[in-house]
């Protein structure tokens, strides 16, 4: 991890010789071309397609026929959508809190105390990402199974007499698996934020008589809130729509909105309904994220 570098575009324009400006602009355009192409084809186009599909009548054709708002109104009016969406948001919120709370001390240690071990430790944190996500999920299946590692250990230590049944195929298993899977995504933005804090502020706080815990709660934590928010966002948004994890370790009580959307595109063969569900869930996620941000801005960030 290098400290945030100043990009080429960050070179102040005044430093450049005047005649080169047009070339500079051309350079900017070319630099942004691949990213722009990918954004417009892979992201904007697919989003538009999703929106389009959500407004079509499902008559068995690939893209449906005629326009209607029925899919969207049905998706909103259906109590099942609300139940499942609420369940997904709650589960993801728990995952987010667990992940960020666990990641914060790691990032803190990396930023302030790791010293020469910092790079090695960062490497270790990225290590699980070298294997497939599915493999990590299956590893948790082995740990949490009825005759799995955890139950055998508990019984071996004499802590329990019979295997605990409520580990695998429960919402708890989903939270554990997701929190583990997204840990590194939370550590990195937190680490970058904490690493970038001006150290002289901490010294100033200490000089003014702040005890370590006061220094943490009054200086470090408020200043690192942007990092916390970034980490929370990175964990929350993808986990709401996750369907692989609930399908593999969740059981019926933890089916999430992603499961329902996937089923519409798969077994139920009703793509327009699935697209409408996806649109509704995107809106719900946006509302939750914006509301949380507003709350944090209002109450937590230093004024």
């Amino acid at each position: 991890m290098s400290p945030p570098s100043v990009g080429v575009q960050g070179v102040p324009a005044a430093n450049r010789p005047a005649p080169r400006r047009s070339r500079g602009r051309l350079f900017d355009v070319l630099l942004n071309l691949p990213g722009g192409l990918i954004t417009s084809t892979l992201i904007l186009f697919t989003l538009a397609l999703l929106l389009y599909l959500s407004l079509r009548v499902n008559d068995g054709q690939l893209l449906g026929s005629a326009f209607t708002f029925a899919n969207l109104t049905q998706a909103v009016a259906d109590p099942l959508t609300r139940t499942v969406l609420l369940r997904s948001i709650m589960l993801s919120a728990i995952v987010t809190v667990v992940t960020v709370v666990l990641a914060y001390p790691v990032a803190y240690f990396l930023a302030f105390h790791a010293g020469k071990y910092r790079h090695g430790l960062l490497f270790m944190i990225s290590l699980p990402f070298w294997t497939s996500y599915l493999l990590r999920v299956f590893a948790w299946k082995i740990v949490l199974a009825w005759n799995g590692v955890l139950n055998s250990t508990l019984m071996g230590l004499g802590l329990t007499d019979a295997p605990l049944a409520g580990l695998l195929n429960t919402p708890t298993a989903v939270v554990i698996t997701l929190a583990h899977a997204y840990a590194a995504f939370a550590v990195l933005p937190l680490y970058i934020c904490l690493h970038g804090l001006a150290r002289n502020l901490l010294e100033a706080a200490a000089d003014l008589g702040a005890k370590p815990h006061q220094c943490f709660f009054k200086v470090i934590l408020p200043l690192s809130m942007p990092g916390v928010m970034a980490a929370a966002l990175v964990v929350f948004v993808p986990t709401v729509g996750d369907y692989v994890t609930p399908a593999l370790v969740g059981g019926p009580a933890s089916s999430m909105i992603g499961t329902l959307i996937q089923a519409q595109f798969g077994k139920a063969n009703d793509w327009t309904a699935g697209a409408a569900l996806a649109v509704v869930s995107m809106l719900a996620i946006a509302v939750v994220v914006l509301a949380t941000r507003a709350l944090v801005n209002r109450w937590v960030l230093p004024r």
Binding site: L80, V84, S255, L260, K267
Partner: peptide, 15 residues
């Protein structure tokens, strides 16, 4: 089949 599939998905999701 389609109606049954939709019903099954609803029940699985808790509806």
């Amino acid at each position: 089949n389609d109606e049954l599939a939709k019903l099954f998905e609803r029940v699985k999701a808790g509806g």
